[in-house]
């Protein structure tokens, strides 16, 4: 099971203090963890929502640090990319995985897989016993679609203004957080649906 999918910044933003990350898209799958844990049962729905937002922010911050440290260590210059370079951007993307200890921020241990494309990171928070090889492939596939259908290498803010496209994408490629074993034929058939949705 994938617990959540995030798109967030990994670069320095003037509006944020150093080390912070702006979450541009977040989707938590399944019921709210807060409802089910004894520790947070007393919280009001409003507080639970806040807690959920904070959890996403914690993951984003941790991944941001991981990405910057990774880039610092590999000593590679980022290439400037423009719309149209999606395939290359994906190929050049940095990737890695962060172990989120139990309680920090989820009640159980999780693995956060990330893909750093330019100043953005795409992050999947999975249960650690999950098939990470499959998760990695799914994350790449999702990222490719996001880059293409939301023109994320450009200047625009379509990731915010067309976030329903990501929702629709997730409902097919990662329905309710379920990683799917899709061979190229199954994938093509889903992609056809995705393209049809985007064309609307």
């Amino acid at each position: 099971m994938v617990r959540c999918f995030l798109i967030h910044t990994v670069c320095q933003l003037s509006a944020l203090s150093a080390g912070e990350s702006r979450v541009l898209y977040s989707r938590v799958f399944g019921p709210d963890e807060g409802v089910l844990s004894d520790q947070h049962r007393e919280l009001s729905p409003e507080e639970r929502r806040l807690l959920q937002k904070e959890k996403a922010a914690v993951v984003a911050r941790q991944v941001r640090s991981a990405v910057s440290l990774f880039r610092e260590a590999s000593d590679r210059q980022l290439m400037e990319m423009v719309p149209g370079d999606e395939a290359l951007a994906l190929q050049e993307a940095d990737s890695g995985v962060v172990r989120l200890r139990a309680g920090d921020p989820f009640s159980e241990e999780m693995s956060a897989l990330w893909l750093g494309v330019q100043s953005l990171a795409f992050t999947l928070v999975c249960e650690p016993h999950e098939n990470l090889l499959l998760a990695e492939g799914t994350l790449r596939n999702l990222t490719r679609h996001c880059l293409e259908h939301l023109h994320m290498l450009g200047q625009g803010s379509e990731v915010l203004l067309r976030s329903h496209r990501i929702d629709a994408l997730l409902s097919r490629l990662l329905p309710h957080g379920q990683l799917l074993f899709l061979n190229h034929r199954f994938a093509q058939s889903l992609e056809k649906e995705v393209v049809a949705y985007m064309a609307k």
């Binding site: 099971m1 799958f29 399944g30 019921p31 963890e33 329905p175 309710h176 957080g177 379920q178």
Partner: peptide, 13 residues
Amino acid sequence: HILPIINTMLTHS
């Protein structure tokens, strides 16, 4: 979509 939903619920509870 029903199987993924069931799986999600079983994961959490």
